[in-house]
C-alpha cells in the first residue's frame, strides 16, 4: 500500500539509523552472552509497500512475502533472507514481473526488557527479476545488487516463538534505482542448534 510520495529514500534510511543509534544507547545487547550459532531462528514474514517511488509510476506492488534464517554470530546476529516481491503493470502496456531479494546481513538485537528486543540491521545481496511477458530480444531474467536497512521489534509469544514487526528499506542499483519501503509482520521459531551443526558452522 502506498501512503506517501518520496524519492528520497536515502534520507529516510539515515533517519532510521539515527533513531536506531538513539535506541541502542539505552539498550543492552540481547546476545552479549550468547555463543556463535548457539540457536537458529526460522522466520516467515509478510509486508506492505508504503512509500511511492519511481517504480510505482508503472507498477504496483501489492504485498511481499519472505523467509529468513538467523543465528547469533561473533558480533550480533547473522541473517540470510529471501523476499518475494510481485509487481503488476498499472496500465497493462508493460510486462508484469516478480523479484526475489536474496541476501545476507547482520542484525544487532538489543534487549529493551524481558519480552521485547529492538533489532536494527543491514542487508545486502542480489535482486533477481523475472519478466513475465518479455516481448523480444531480451532475456527474461536479470539481477542487480541491492543494499538495505531494517529496524525490528521482536516480542516473545512463547519461549520458542517470537513475533516480529519490522520496517525495511531496500535500494537496488539499477540505472533508475529501485527503492521499496516495507512494513513487515512475521513470526519466528527459535531452536537450539544441534551440536554437530554448531560445530560445522563454527
Amino acid at each position: 500500500m502506498v501512503i506517501s510520495e518520496s524519492n528520497n529514500i536515502i534520507s529516510r534510511i539515515c533517519a532510521l539509523f539515527v533513531l536506531a543509534v538513539i535506541t541502542i544507547a539505552g539498550a543492552d545487547s540481547a546476545y552479549g552472552q550468547s555463543r556463535p550459532f548457539d540457536t537458529i531462528h526460522f522466520g516467515v514474514a509478510g509486508g506492505l509497500d508504503f512509500v511511492e517511488t519511481e517504480i510505482h509510476e508503472t507498477w504496483t506492488i501489492p504485498a511481499v512475502a519472505g523467509i529468513y534464517i538467523a543465528s547469533p554470530f561473533y558480533a550480533g546476529q547473522a541473517v540470510i533472507s529471501a523476499t518475494y516481491l510481485p509487481a503488476s503493470s498499472r496500465s497493462g502496456d508493460v510486462t508484469d514481473f516478480w523479484a526475489l531479494y536474496a541476501g545476507a546481513g547482520l542484525d544487532y538485537p538489543l534487549k529493551i526488557n524481558n519480552r521485547i528486543e529492538f533489532v536494527p540491521g543491514f542487508r545486502f545481496g542480489s535482486m533477481y527479476m523475472n519478466f513475465k511477458d518479455e516481448p523480444v530480444d531480451f532475456r527474461k531474467e536479470e539481477s542487480e545488487i541491492f543494499v538495505g536497512a531494517e529496524l525490528g521489534l521482536v516480542t516473545t509469544i512463547t519461549p520458542s516463538a517470537k513475533l516480529k514487526f519490522s520496517s525495511t528499506l531496500l535500494h537496488t542499483f539499477t540505472d533508475v534505482p529501485i527503492d521499496v519501503s516495507l512494513f513487515n509482520l512475521g513470526i519466528e521459531y527459535r531452536i537450539k542448534t544441534p551440536g554437530w551443526l554448531r560445530n560445522v558452522l563454527q
Binding site: E57, V94, S126, M129, T174, D175
Partner: peptide
Amino acid sequence: NESGDPGPFRYSHDDA
C-alpha cells in the same frame, strides 16, 4: 555484479 542495468525500467523508459 555490475550496477546500472535498466531492470524493469527497460519497459517504461525509452532511454533505458
